[in-house]
Simulated assay, not measured.
Amino acid sequence: MSTGYLETTKNIYREAAEHPQVGLCCTTTPIWSLPGLKIPKRMQEMNYGCGSTVNPRDLVKDPKILYVGVGGGMELLQFAYFSRQTGGVVGIDVVDEMLEASRKNFVEAERVNPWFKSEFVELRKGDALHLPVEDNSIDVAAQNCLFNIFKEDELKQALTEMYRVLKPNGRLVLSDPTCETFMPGALKDDERLRALCLSGALPLKDYIKMITDIGFGTVEIRAKRPYRILDPKHYATDKLIFIESVEVCAIKDPMPDDGPCVFTGKTAIYFGNEDFFDDHKGHVLMPNQPLAVCDKTGGNLAALQHEDIYISESTWFYDGGGCC
């Protein structure tokens, strides 16, 4: 398979490192508002992402954090806010100019944030397909609007690499565009559009399947929101193509015998007259107390056709506290 599009991607981000381009490929990532955290202006201008990745709740107990595709270093600085330890955050990038720009930005970040030291972040040259990171050494790994650039074989390899470096029960947090509309071949094969995070978007179901096929036993869909339109006036398509951005957390849990637990925001509510309902598979529903359920459990409960159990549709938002 040709990988010329990867070289096109490198060239685009070399230019973006030397001459910041606000919103180059995506809707910019929301900036965390935290006491004592100041994001230098140049970091904000180099904020090339399509959503949020890591949530502060992922950063408890001094985790070792890996971020692939450093941009201007903004997310690395945000992660360091929670770890505050030498080498607690590892940033990987294949573009020398981007690594150098981040180093300069960290000098400014040190000036405006008394708590921050550049040594909190370790920058390494490398790419997502061959991570220069030891096996089972990372608690939280993240990427923002990078994996959608890859074609299928490279995407599988990138996900496999993330799985390799994560500790058992470690978390892979991703933000990427997805698309349920057929993407014409002319757009898929356009190297620049792919590098700009537009034409590589997969249907969400296919994206999740690639993640679980690698071995991740639990997948959480944390957010899903409108993102871009590719229209016939500007792109090689005869109809509107609607693209959404999705925020996903994949957990390196053991794979259940009956398949992965995928949370898409479904909820089960028991409204019967008994003190509780027990499905004898580890799920107990208390009266009128909503329980977030994975799609698998939701389907099993729905199949019972119990007149006093309601299963909601997917909301594409999951914030923890579920059935598994």
Rank of each mutant, 00 (worst) to 15 (best):
Met1Leu: 13
Ser2Glu: 15
Gly4Ile: 09
Gly4Trp: 10
Leu6Val: 11
Leu6Lys: 13
Glu7Ala: 10
Asn11Ser: 04
Glu18Arg: 15
Gln21Lys: 13
Val22Tyr: 07
Cys26Thr: 11
Thr29Phe: 05
Ser33Val: 14
Ser33Ile: 12
Pro35Asn: 05
Leu37Ala: 04
Asn47Arg: 10
Tyr48Gln: 02
Cys50Asn: 09
Leu59Lys: 02
Val60Ser: 01
Val68Ile: 15
Leu76Cys: 15
Phe82Cys: 06
Arg84Ile: 01
Val90Ala: 02
Val95Gln: 01
Val95Ile: 07
Asp96Phe: 00
Asp96Gln: 07
Met98Leu: 05
Glu100His: 08
Lys104Ile: 06
Arg111His: 11
Arg111Ser: 10
Val112Ala: 02
Glu119Cys: 01
Asp127Val: 01
Ile138Tyr: 04
Asn144Glu: 14
Leu146Glu: 00
Phe147Arg: 06
Asn148Cys: 13
Leu155Trp: 07
Gln157Trp: 01
Gln157Met: 14
Leu159Pro: 07
Leu159Thr: 06
Glu161Ser: 09
Leu166Thr: 09
Lys167Ser: 09
Lys167Glu: 13
Asn169Ala: 15
Leu172Trp: 06
Leu174Glu: 02
Leu174Ser: 03
Asp176Asn: 11
Pro177Ile: 07
Glu180Phe: 03
Thr181Leu: 07
Met183Pro: 11
Lys188Thr: 07
Asp190Arg: 00
Asp190Ile: 04
Arg192His: 06
Ala195Trp: 04
Ala195Leu: 07
Leu198Phe: 04
Leu198Tyr: 03
Ser199Ala: 08
Ala201Asp: 12
Leu204Gly: 00
Leu204His: 05
Tyr207Leu: 14
Ile208Leu: 14
Lys209Val: 09
Gly217Val: 05
Thr218Glu: 15
Val219Lys: 10
Ile221Lys: 01
Ala223Asn: 14
Pro226Val: 02
Tyr227Glu: 11
Ile229Ser: 10
Ala236Trp: 01
Ile241Tyr: 00
Glu244Thr: 03
Val246Ala: 10
Cys249Phe: 00
Ala250Cys: 08
Ile251Cys: 02
Asp253Tyr: 08
Pro254Cys: 05
Met255Tyr: 08
Met255His: 10
Pro256Asp: 11
Asp257Ala: 15
Gly259Glu: 12
Val262Ser: 02
Val262Gly: 00
Thr264Ala: 11
Gly265Ile: 08
Lys266Ala: 09
Ala268Asn: 06
Ala268Leu: 12
Asn273Glu: 15
Glu274Ile: 06
Phe277Leu: 15
Asp278Pro: 11
Leu285Ser: 12
Gln289His: 12
Asn300Ile: 08
Ala302Asp: 09
Leu304Asn: 03
Glu313Val: 10
Glu313Ser: 15
Ser314Thr: 01
Tyr318Val: 03
Cys324Met: 10
